[in-house]
């Protein structure tokens, strides 16, 4: 039987040991019987031309088309309460392509609960921050919360969930 193909999205590809991390993730995916699709090698370069950058993005789009399941790391990234831009964007692409979508993060409390600044309840309806800006109602943006299945924990927790859902016959 052909293995289920996974595409991983998240900021780990920007870590100094990104390629080594990816190998470990690939092994972890195999442990659960999944095949992890590999990014183009050029993606790991720190510097590149815009032309190559665009070409690699197109290659990654093809990988998303090829995958059965997309798993995104939605941990806060260079912001508060917002994940890595590629994670959200790639989840959206997967949504348009009818892929099975999962995201994971270690802390899945609601946005206003995760917010470390000052927050106040407005009109008894929802919380706002010190600038009067409202929070998303869930742990992540509404589109991600309902467009994908959110798992509390790490990649392995997400893989366990995928394996369990698969076992229940989604494919």
């Amino acid at each position: 039987m052909e293995k289920i193909k996974l595409y991983l999205s998240g900021p780990d590809r920007l870590k100094k040991n990104a390629e080594e991390l990816f190998k470990k993730k690939k092994e972890l995916c195999e442990k659960y019987g999944f095949e992890l699709l590999e990014y183009p090698k050029d993606l790991y370069k720190a510097k590149d031309s815009l032309e190559n950058n665009e070409r690699i993005a197109k290659q990654r789009l093809e990988l998303i088309r090829e995958c059965d399941v997309l798993i995104a790391d939605t941990i806060d990234f260079r912001s508060f309460l917002e994940p890595y831009s590629e994670s959200a964007f790639e989840l959206g692409i997967g949504f348009g392509l009818f892929k099975k979508l999962y995201c994971y993060m270690p802390d899945t409390r609601l946005c206003h609960e995760r917010y470390s600044g000052t927050k106040t309840l407005k009109d008894g309806k929802g919380y706002v921050d010190e600038n009067g800006i409202g929070f998303e109602p869930g742990p992540v943006n509404l589109m991600l919360e309902y467009g994908a299945k959110l798992v509390k924990g790490d990649l392995e927790d997400a893989l366990k969930t995928v394996a369990a859902d698969f076992g229940k016959g989604w494919k």
Binding site: R78, S79, P83, A88, L91, G92, I93, F95, E136, L144
Partner: peptide, 17 residues
């Protein structure tokens, strides 16, 4: 922060898909 809104990105991602 230093990233666009994730809901916005999800939505435009859908159109790219």
């Amino acid at each position: 922060g230093h990233e666009p809104d994730s809901g916005t990105l999800f939505e435009i991602g859908y159109f790219i898909g």
